[in-house]
Design a binder for these strands. Structure first.
Lengths: 140, 140
DNA sequence: CTGGACCCTGTAGTGAGCTAGAGGGTTTAG
DNA sequence: CTAAACCCTCTAGCTCACTACAGGGTCCAG
């Protein structure tokens, strides 16, 4: 039976819903630490559950594990990393906006092709694979 | 000197702007075929340039190389794959629309956090890493 | 004392579309 | 003839966050 102050990796996995392998992966990235017993087992304090939840929440905000590592580094310097988190968040928002814009423009392109191709079918020329696609310009 | 009817891989690369390694990769996926000379070299007919341009155009429409392979398979059955291409295109447009919608919703979430966090700073509780992120709900 | 549940390390694989390099053979211009 | 430029195969690496073994050791209830 697990004593409350000494969790095994499976306990942490159960309490967080994160797979054992993923927890070991977090440790390999320096996002989670553990003490080792004489048997080689990882042992965690109860706060580890909180730490893993923190990682999951940060991921839910679109942060990469590398971002999380950066946040934790600031935290381990003794600072509250909230300012840093806010700027990361602003970056993510900006990236999303850029991506959305690009994808929207691209979708408009595709719709143009779709609509143009719905009306008239170009007549196939010898060697054509699909006469529709052949009309796409190469932007080289 | 390259005879017009027998291109080496480097010739095709130069005429299409596609790297030699990429051409070999296309061949490994069955998108491009070549004859082998006694020296082991790949030799291509001039149409290969057109075929590679076709691949590039399809990619420009957001088609994956696997999509291109499917299109070519239809073509090799002797059919004009335009109907198939149209339905693939419609799929891509739909996928883009879904992604844009998801990203837009997610961006709105992030902006909510950003704006909420700009106003008031939650007071840190013992054990908190970043009191802002701690307020994010875990959707488990 | 045994069997099943747990733990360990280390490696490989996933997806996409390539690029880079090692270690060789071939061709070609001068 | 020679050196550069080309060609070959095979392997590894890139990104990201894991998962899935293989091959072992450990722990605990009955």
């Amino acid at each position: 039976m697990a004593v409350a102050t000494r969790l095994k990796i499976g306990d942490v996995a159960k309490q967080t819903g994160v797979a054992v392998g993923a927890l070991r992966y977090y440790e390999s990235l320096g996002l989670l630490s553990s003490e080792r017993g004489d048997n080689g087992y990882r042992y965690y304090p109860p706060e580890a559950v909180h730490q893993v939840q923190f990682i999951k929440k940060a991921q839910a905000l679109g942060f990469s594990l590398e971002d999380v590592g950066d946040v934790l580094t600031v935290h381990q310097r003794g600072d509250l990393p909230c300012g840093f988190v806010r700027s990361l968040l602003q970056d993510k928002i900006q990236q999303l906006e850029d991506q959305i814009q690009q994808m929207t423009a691209f979708k408009a392109d595709l719709e143009q092709y779709r609509d143009r191709w719905a009306e008239s079918q170009p007549r196939p020329q010898s060697g054509d694979i699909c006469p529709l696609i052949e009309t796409v310009p190469l932007t080289v």
